[in-house]
Simulated assay, not measured.
Amino acid sequence: MRFAAAAEAALACGWRYTVVSGWHPYVQTTLDTLASQRRPMADPLGLQKQVLAQLAQGPRPFGELAQMTTVPVVGRAAILHLLWHRSVGVDLSAPLTDRSVVHRSTPELGRPR
Rank of each mutant, 00 (worst) to 15 (best):
T70A: 10
G14S: 13
T69K: 05
A7F: 03
R104S: 08
V19T: 08
E108R: 13
C13A: 14
R99F: 01
P40W: 15
V101S: 08
L109M: 11
W15Q: 12
V101F: 00
P95K: 05
W84S: 03
A66P: 13
P40L: 15
T70C: 11
V20W: 08
G46T: 05
T70Y: 01
R113G: 13
H103Y: 13
P44A: 03
S93V: 00
L11P: 04
G46S: 05
Y26K: 00
G46L: 07
T30D: 13
S105F: 04
V73M: 13
S105R: 08
V74F: 06
L45Q: 14
P44C: 07
T70L: 10
P25Q: 11
F62I: 05
A5E: 14
G22K: 01
L109V: 06
V71S: 11
I79D: 07
S100R: 05
E108D: 11
R99I: 00
A5G: 08
V27T: 10
G110K: 06
R113A: 13
A94K: 07
L92W: 00
Q37N: 13
L45R: 13
T70I: 11
Q57A: 14
T106V: 11
M41F: 09
R38W: 01
V20Y: 09
A10M: 09
T18Y: 11
G46K: 10
V73D: 15
P112A: 08
M41W: 12
M1W: 05
A12T: 10
D98T: 04
G22R: 07
P61M: 14
H85L: 10
H81E: 06
L83P: 00
Q37E: 15
A66T: 08
M1F: 07
M68C: 10
